[in-house]
């Protein structure tokens, strides 16, 4: 694999420092959180030991990662059938997808799965570059309404009907 972008020889993946910092914070939080636990009477071990170990090792791993990064260690990002690692990460698309999913979780109880599910499908397809919006909306509606009925009739699980309560 050749790197497509022109980078000077010793490449440092700065984002890995961020990951190391995040892991260290998680490790510290795990330990701090565990300090607040009470060890019961006659309980020789208690609920603290395991989190202590995990938190401590996490901090150690964070340090090791930071050291490895400064020595020029770069991650091997995951490849896949549909993944083209030669192009730059497309943050706009990811942002749109996350936005659509956030809207879904905000409105699902109000509008009901039958509506938000359809919008979720069409919205995600649109974010990913589909230009057949009408078709996606219809496909999404068919999928969400039929999945609502599938859960209701076959599995006996009522998903939220939302504003369509009584219509579905």
């Amino acid at each position: 694999m050749t790197t497509p972008v022109t980078t000077p020889a010793p490449r440092v993946d700065r984002a890995q420092y961020g990951l190391a910092a995040l892991l260290a914070v998680v490790g510290v939080y795990t330990i701090v959180d565990a300090r607040g636990l009470n060890v019961g009477f006659g309980d020789p071990i208690g609920p603290r030991v395991f989190p202590y170990v995990i938190g401590a090792v996490m901090i150690l791993l964070a340090v090791l990662l930071a050291v490895a990064t400064s020595r020029g260690d770069v991650p091997e990002a995951e490849a896949g059938e549909d993944v083209d690692l030669t192009v730059r990460a497309d943050w706009l698309t990811v942002g749109k997808l996350v936005g659509v999913m956030v809207l879904n979780l905000l409105f699902i109880n109000l509008l009901g799965w039958a509506i938000t599910g359809a919008l979720l499908f069409a919205g995600c397809a649109w974010s990913l570059g589909s230009r057949t919006l009408v078709r996606d909306l219809i496909v999404g509606a068919v999928m969400s309404v039929s999945s609502w009925y599938f859960f209701w009739v076959v599995l006996d699980v009522p998903l939220s009907p939302g504003i369509l309560d009584g219509i579905l």
Binding site: W91, L97, V98
Partner: peptide, 10 residues
């Protein structure tokens, strides 16, 4: 997986 692929869609 879907988000990762979306960021690098072939």
């Amino acid at each position: 997986e879907a988000l990762w692929t979306a960021a690098h869609l072939r």
